[in-house]
C-alpha cells in the first residue's frame, strides 16, 4: 500500500517543483503504470518511494508507515520490502546470474541453504534457469532484465518498483518482461511501472497515473496512455 499526501518536491529553490502537490493511493496488489514526458517527475516519484530523497512538503505512507519518520538506520529495512528494477539493469558484471540473485539474499543474511533453494525458483519464474551460470555480458538485454527482476523479487517484497524496465528492449522482449511482471502481480505483489511504452500501457488495461510537469493530471482505473506526444 502506497499513499502520497500533498507531496511536493523541489530540488533547487529557483527551479520549478519536480513534483507538485501530488496525492494518490495505490492499494495492496494493484498494478499501476506511471507515465509522463521526460522531466515530468517519474523518477522523482520513485526516488521518494525508496527514500533516496525526502519530500519538500507532504507525507508518504508505505504499508501505513510514514516514511518521513524513518531514521537512517531504518531505511535499509524499508528497502527490503521493495524490489527495484531499472532501465539500465545494474547487474554486477563479475558475478554470475546465480550470484547476482544470491547477492540480494546474502546481504540480508539468508543462509546458504535458503539461497540454494530459492534462487533457482526465482530464475525459473523469470524463465532463465538455463542461464544460471552465465555472466551478464553473455546475456541479451531481455535476459539481463529477467535477472534483475529475479533479484528484485527474491526477498519477497510487498512492492515491486520498475523505472522503465523495457526502455532498452525491443517490443517482443518488452511484452515478455511485462507478462513476467503480471505474473508476479498475480501472486500478490504491488507493482508500479514507469514507462514510455504507449503500446504496452494500452494493451494491458491497468490503472494509469499521468504526470505533467510534476502534477498528477490523470488517474485512470482502466487506463490508456494519458498524454499526447
Amino acid at each position: 500500500m502506497i499513499e502520497f499526501k500533498n507531496v511536493t518536491k523541489s530540488y533547487e529553490k529557483n527551479k520549478s517543483d519536480a513534483l507538485k502537490n501530488v496525492s494518490l493511493f495505490i492499494d495492496k496488489g494493484e498494478f499501476v503504470f506511471l507515465v509522463g514526458r521526460s522531466g515530468a517527475g517519474k523518477s522523482t516519484f520513485i526516488k521518494l518511494l525508496l527514500r533516496e530523497i525526502e519530500p519538500t512538503q507532504g507525507s508518504i505512507f508505505i504499508n501505513n508507515y510514514n516514511i518521513a519518520n524513518l531514521s537512517k538506520r531504518e531505511i535499509p529495512f524499508l528497502r527490503r520490502k521493495m524490489g527495484v528494477v531499472f532501465q539500465d539493469f545494474r547487474l554486477l558484471e563479475n558475478k554470475s546470474v546465480f550470484e547476482n540473485v544470491a547477492y540480494a539474499m546474502e546481504i540480508i543474511g539468508k543462509s546458504e541453504k535458503q539461497i540454494r533453494k530459492r534462487v533457482p525458483l526465482a530464475l525459473d519464474m523469470v524463465g532463465l534457469s538455463h542461464r544460471i551460470n552465465h555472466y551478464p555480458h553473455e546475456l541479451s538485454g531481455g535476459e539481463q532484465q529477467r535477472v534483475v527482476i529475479a533479484r528484485a523479487i527474491i526477498n519477497n517484497p510487498t512492492i515491486l518498483i520498475c523505472d522503465e524496465p523495457t526502455g532498452n528492449l525491443d517490443p517482443e522482449t518488452s511484452y515478455e518482461i511485462i507478462s513476467i511482471l503480471e505474473e508476479i502481480n498475480r501472486r500478490g505483489t504491488t507493482i508500479v511501472v514507469v514507462t514510455h511504452d504507449r503500446e504496452i500501457v494500452d494493451v494491458m488495461k491497468k490503472r494509469v497515473l499521468t504526470l505533467e510537469d510534476g502534477a498528477l493530471t490523470v488517474d485512470d482505473a482502466i487506463g490508456r496512455y494519458g498524454y499526447e506526444v
Binding site: 537512517k72 545494474r90 554486477l92 547477492y103
Partner: peptide
C-alpha cells in the same frame, strides 16, 4: 556501483 546496488537491495550501512 556495487554499493549503489547494495543499498537498493536493503543492505545496512554496517554491512
Amino acid at each position: 556501483r556495487e554499493i549503489g546496488i547494495m543499498k537498493y537491495v536493503g543492505a545496512t550501512n554496517n554491512y
